[in-house]
Amino acid sequence: MKRRPLVIAAATVGVLATAAFALPNLPPNPLSDTIDDRVFKEKGKRFATAAEAPTRGNQAFVLPSWIPKDATDVRIRVRTDGNARLIRFNLGEIPLDGPQCTAGTPHRIEDPELGARWWPGRIRAEVRPECRDRFQYQVAVRGKRVYAWTDGTPSPGAGQHSGAPAAPASAR
């Protein structure tokens, strides 16, 4: 009986299993970024302040206008094949109140299927306002830390970048 093919197969399975567990937990680097983008269809960025985030260009990382300008430790995770996003930031002196964030019961939007080590579990129960920009966001506040997410549902009356009306979520 030949053991060599079995040893090679077992070693290959071991390497693949180790990579599956280790790669998502590595700090950002070219290898993990490529795997996130091509395999998981996700990308992430971190900004020390909201002012450092882009205001135009790659729309995936342009922050919604309702995020206070003095927010710090801004993290964003996006789907590269859609509009789902996770955003986390710390509030500064400017509160999360304004005409774009309503205090009523938010409309339910789907939880985005994104993975981020900095995203807490069971955040849905803490949803407070619904904030709107180009998309509708669900928002939860824990002390000074704010968690926001969207499944890409357009805000009522929001247009796409081309100026055309936004497609309903059911059409996507």
Rank of each mutant, 00 (worst) to 15 (best):
T105G: 11
A158W: 01
K43C: 10
P64R: 04
W118E: 06
R108E: 15
A11I: 11
P68S: 10
G92W: 09
V62T: 15
G104S: 12
G104Y: 08
A51I: 03
N29T: 09
R38Y: 14
A125C: 07
G143L: 03
W118H: 04
A60M: 14
H161E: 05
A125I: 12
W119R: 03
K41C: 07
G152Q: 02
R108A: 14
V127Y: 02
M1K: 12
R142T: 08
E42Q: 15
G163Q: 05
A84K: 05
I87T: 09
T55W: 06
P168V: 06
V39T: 07
S65D: 14
K144F: 01
W149R: 05
E126N: 05
A51W: 02
R128H: 06
Q138P: 00
G115S: 14
G143R: 00
G14Y: 04
A50S: 12
G14D: 04
H161L: 10
G152Y: 03
T18I: 05
V62P: 09
L96V: 09
L96W: 04
R38H: 14
A17G: 10
L91S: 13
L114C: 04
R124W: 12
P120I: 08
A84G: 13
A10L: 14
D70W: 05
V78D: 03
K144M: 02
R79N: 13
V127T: 06
R88W: 07
E126W: 07
R79L: 14
W149Q: 06
H107I: 15
V139D: 00
L114K: 05
P106V: 08
V39C: 04
D37E: 15
A53M: 07
